[in-house]
Design a protein around this nucleic acid. Structure first.
Lengths: 259, 259
DNA sequence: GATCAAAACGTGTCCAGACAGGTTTCCCCA
DNA sequence: TGGGGAAACCTGTCTGGACACGTTTTGATC
């Protein structure tokens, strides 16, 4: 078993740090079914033998898997495999276009509006601007294989929105357009809730008013910590599921009463 | 600024590992507002001076904050603060009772049924039992300050359910009851979607059929990796918001099309 | 004031060593 | 066969050292 890990370690691209290589080899061994949930990973000493790495480096690789929720560790006891669904990179989580393509569907967008106006104080607060400042707001319908599945209400600070006015937002992704101007997204906060469709959204989604929508509000930050987008995606309830994994060793999900 | 960190480090309980202490001191410094999003943390050398710790230990504390999504790091550049909402421990995320109490509300439960029966194949699969095996299934209404906010449909493998039949599940928490028998929860998978209330759930929640519900399905695993619960919580849409944080350095949330 | 190169700074990685303490296995005895 | 203790195993922590490499600042020149 430790031989399988060592073999995989030897097959991973040597241009990456050793601890990343080993984490990848372990991840692949788990994904292959050779290690099942509840099974024990090789210990530090065995992994050191199989890879020629120092113990600190081995520990770092295992710590990476722990932070991903793949394994569980306990002092004195062998590290064990946890079960988890497939997750996705942040970029894919953010971008409707990337997500649709990853699942083999044809993404589409229909622009409803892109205007400069002021927004309500809660959104202004999220974007860290004054209540009366102007922002660029956009409404788009997002389609999968021609079927409307989501209405997106997004707000951008002036300097960000200005980069988008000339972009083709029916064919491409906001984030791709921003990346062309050197703006990279780094993190986001999501707020998830269930709402009843109002008349305008219902019409855009070809559904009855009152139909349940999964509401996904999001504030997205650039790598310098400034907010670059506040969006409010309203998905047809029958079009999406969100998966999340959590463990006592790391949880990025929280429940609260509404504001 | 680094003095503030050093002072906080000195105030943290010495019974915990040094890297945990430092991570806590840094977390508190950020939470206090002394470090704002975009601000730079002191570098390794300054933190070493302020705390007397080795560089490896300092790096480990910073890596902890990075995994939590609190800070962003980049080779050669100073570590910077990211913005994030308050999150909650896993135990609080899982337990309605703990969550309600944490927010100062009075939790309640009304048992609808607790019976042994077989369940549909998808649930059987999640619990890793045969399609015709019997499980304990439970339906409860959960109340906050006497108001019904959630209907919980839960399924337990026989050996787990058997521990619950004698517990007072209107007054207390399933997880607390299991913990009394040495069963500790370790991780979970969540699936989040929006649905329309069926007649039975609507009646229990005192809402109209068709009203939007936030559906939170969950499979919970014990520390040995075995599934101990499959639950399907249906929350009134107006009673709950789920917060999640994500970054390019770690994301535990994923979007997919429904099965 | 602008530009460029070098120096200083800061982070990422990796190593070897040592100690603490929890878990698991093995052996012995009743 | 069951229980207890010791040994072996395993993970968690911490240290100091060194090298690689990316970022920021400084100083010199035009």
């Amino acid at each position: 078993m430790v031989k399988a890990v060592g073999k995989r370690y030897g097959q991973v691209d040597q241009g990456v740090p050793a601890h990343v290589r080993l984490a990848s080899a372990l991840r692949d061994t788990i994904a292959s079914g050779e290690l099942l949930p509840g099974d024990l990973l090789p210990g530090d000493a065995a992994l050191m033998d199989a890879t020629g790495l120092a113990r600190g480096t081995v520990r770092q690789a295992v710590a990476t898997l722990r932070a991903e929720g793949l394994v569980q560790t306990r002092q004195g006891a062998r590290t064990s495999v946890l079960q988890r669904p497939r997750l996705q990179p942040f970029s894919e989580l953010l971008s409707f276009t990337a997500w649709a393509r990853q699942q083999g569907a044809n993404p589409g967008a229909r622009m409803v509006e892109l205007v400069r106006r002021s927004v309500d104080p809660a959104v202004a607060h999220e974007l860290r601007i004054g209540d009366n400042d102007l922002v660029w707001t956009m409404v788009r319908v997002r389609l999968l294989d021609g079927v409307p599945v989501m209405v997106e209400h997004a707000a951008y600070p002036e300097r960000i929105g200005a980069l988008l006015v000339d972009a083709d937002l029916e064919a491409g992704s906001v984030y791709a357009a921003l990346a062309e101007h050197g703006i990279e997204v780094a993190s986001g906060h999501h707020r998830i809730s269930a709402i009843a469709a109002e008349a305008a959204d219902a019409e855009l989604l070809r559904a009855r008013p009152g139909t349940p929508l999964l509401r996904q509000e999001r504030t997205v930050f650039a790598s310098d910590g400034t907010p670059i987008e506040h969006s409010d995606d309203r998905w047809r309830g029958d079009s999406i599921v969100l998966d999340a994994v959590n463990s006592v060793q790391g949880s990025q999900l929280a429940r609260r009463a509404p504001d």
